[in-house]
Computed example of a mutant assay.
Amino acid sequence: MRVTPDRAARPTPSGRAERAAEKVAELVESVPPGSRLGTKEELRTLCGVSVGTFNEALRLLQSRGLVTVKPGPGGGLFSAEQSPMVRLGNSVLALDTQANDVADAVRIRDALDPLLIEDALWHASPADIAGLRRHIAAMEEAKDAADPVAFVHANWRLHAAIAATSPNALLSSLYTHLLDLIERHTLTVLPASDQPLGEYIAHRHELHRDLVDALDRRDRDEALRLIHEHNTTLQAADARAAHG
């Protein structure tokens, strides 16, 4: 069947969601932070899209830290307030609240990583390694889709899976709680240096892939070297020293 020009140019659902998100983003830029934009139905009608398409647009807007949703009378969509920030390597986490708590959680998580890598070297089974590789594949998909939020969430799931291999229930539970706290308050991921965020994410994907390979080989020296390189707290300290 021959495709007519009109049909060939018809936007895809993801394209319609992106355009709806852009329209709401323009509205956000025109009002002060914290301003009420309208109800979901009012904004969906303004964008002229279906409920499903607007829900996808809303997901994009929330992942970019542009809007917040408040329930109840007087609720609806609001332009996001100024987001607190926490440094994570060469990227920045834009948070909803509790910046100090998240910064502390990142620092403690980084300190615990070598302990969990030591446990994984001894206790990760072939099935555990296969599960880690599935998380690496999810990180690769997010990298290829240029979706930094999905990437960091997949990254955190990988680390939670590494923690789950530890026989130390207290250590594993503490680490998982820290990841939950960080994930719960993260809105989006932004570049923090001259290095493009895409390049940084590609490097982090390669580092984690190599780390899982080292765990599979039971290569302790390489695994510990990589987790040291992985340490975002040390990266931030190195960056401050370089510019001091």
Results as ranks from 00 to 15, higher is better:
Ile162Gln: 02
Ala103Glu: 12
Ala202His: 07
His153Lys: 15
Val106Pro: 00
Asp147Gly: 04
Pro114Tyr: 10
Ala130Thr: 10
Phe151Asn: 05
Leu170Pro: 00
Leu116His: 00
Arg109Asn: 13
Thr176Arg: 13
Arg204Asn: 07
His135Tyr: 10
Thr176Ala: 12
Leu93Lys: 03
Met85Phe: 12
Ser193Glu: 09
Ala160His: 04
Gln98Tyr: 15
Leu88Phe: 14
Arg133Val: 02
Val189Asn: 01
Arg184Thr: 13
His153Ile: 14
Ile182Tyr: 06
Ile136Tyr: 04
Met139Pro: 00
Ala163Phe: 02
Leu171Glu: 12
Ala202Phe: 01
Ser166Lys: 03
Ser172Gln: 11
Leu115Gly: 00
Arg134Lys: 14
Asp110Lys: 02
Pro114Cys: 10
Ala127Arg: 14
Ala161Asp: 11
Ala94Glu: 11
Gly89Asn: 04
Ala94Thr: 07
Leu197Cys: 05
Ala142Met: 07
Pro148Met: 10
Ile136Thr: 11
Ser166Trp: 03
His203Tyr: 15
Leu95Ala: 04
Val152Gln: 06
Thr186Cys: 09
His159Ile: 01
Ala124His: 09
Tyr175Gln: 05
Ala111Met: 11
Val106Gln: 03
Ser193Arg: 10
Ala138Thr: 06
Ala130Tyr: 01
Ile136Glu: 00
Ala163Gly: 11
Ala192Ser: 14
Leu112His: 08
Leu174Cys: 11
Ala169Lys: 13
His123Asn: 12
Thr176Ser: 13
Asn155Ser: 14
Ser173Gly: 14
Leu95Gly: 09
Leu174Arg: 11
Asp128Phe: 01
Ile108His: 09
Ala127Phe: 07
Ser193Ala: 11
Glu199Phe: 10
Ala138Gln: 11
His159Glu: 05
Asn90Pro: 00
Pro196Val: 12
Asp104Gln: 13
Thr97Gly: 05
Tyr200Cys: 00
Ala202Arg: 11
His159Gly: 01
Val106Lys: 03
Ala161Val: 03
Ala154Thr: 09
Leu181Thr: 08
Ser166Asn: 07
Val149Trp: 07
Pro148Ile: 09
Asp144Pro: 00
Thr186Ser: 07
Ser172Phe: 04
Ala111Trp: 10
His185Ala: 02
Ala99Ile: 06
Leu178Gly: 05
Gly198Ser: 15
Leu178Glu: 01
Pro191His: 06
Arg109Pro: 00
Ala160Val: 06
Asp194Arg: 15
Ile136Asn: 03
Leu115Arg: 11
Ala202Pro: 01
Tyr200Val: 14
Glu199Lys: 12
Ile201Gln: 02
Ile129Lys: 03
Asp144Arg: 15
Arg204Gln: 15
Trp122Glu: 12
Gln98Lys: 12
Glu183Trp: 06
Asn100Cys: 02
Met139Gly: 02
Leu121Val: 00
Val92Tyr: 03
Pro84Ile: 05
Ala94Leu: 13
His205Pro: 02
Leu115Trp: 05
Leu95Asn: 04
Ala146Asp: 14
Thr186Gln: 10
Met139Gln: 15
Glu118Arg: 08
Gly131Pro: 08
Ala130Val: 06
Leu174Gln: 10
Leu174Asp: 01
Glu183Ser: 15
Ala169Thr: 14
Asp96Phe: 07
Arg134Cys: 09
Ala202Asn: 06
Leu181Met: 10
Ser125Tyr: 02
Pro191Met: 06
